[in-house]
Amino acid sequence: MLEIRNLHASINGKEILKGIDLTIRDGEVHAIMGTNGAGKSTLSHVIVGNPAYEVTEGEIIFNGKNLLEMNTEERALEGIFLSFQQPVEIPGVSMTHFMRAALNARRKHEGLEPLPAGEFLKLMREKRKIVELDSKLANRSVNEGFSGGEKKRNEIFQMAMLEPRFSILDETDSGLDVDALRIVAEGFNKLRRPETSAMVITHYQRLLDYLRPDIIHVLIDGRIIKTAGPELALEIEEKGFDWIKEEAGL
């Protein structure tokens, strides 16, 4: 379970998050919607511990542990995963090397031995099928020369490999065609478990049709100004955000 209380965060001295309260229980999928520049990506980066952002107030508790006391990799090892809006290209580091380092770090954290090479490759084969990535993946450098769609599928592939407790999908639907969107969304759904939860950042109803979130939050100007059931997304699709802003007196 993730609990965010009165979270304030800034970048380069500019306050972006101005008091976020949010609770996501096991098994739940929450969607965060909002206008550009409202702070959605900032929220996701603050949760995973991007050192570029400074938390000035508030707390984030994950399964009883204070996330703000942990660095990026410690949070990841606790089971927090971010599907990046813009996955980073790492020339020269093969997906195999990268994934093995990540998976074995996780296993070590859980007190397990590194996975033998044969089993690891078998696992890679199995998991890449979930997002329909081909066999060349293993030898390619991380995200280098990947199309926009491949990059997003690669994010979900990594999620499948690492089996996080809590995932953030940061505009995973942006730049995807209809087929790729379906592959990514169905891939995500296959990975859902009763004990996992997720936060989905998106501008579009299309992705939410697949993911069926339990709760929708509207984030405007660094604050959550409305929280409701899935029907809210449909209303936003139809009417935009202005009415919500008015309702909130903004």
Binding site: P51, E73, A101, A105, H109
Partner: peptide
């Protein structure tokens, strides 16, 4: 940052790069 988000320790990430 990307590698650390995947749980790869700082030193290991540096080494991979």
């Amino acid at each position: 940052f990307y590698m650390q988000q995947r749980g790869i320790p700082y030193e290991e990430a540096r080494m991979l790069l």
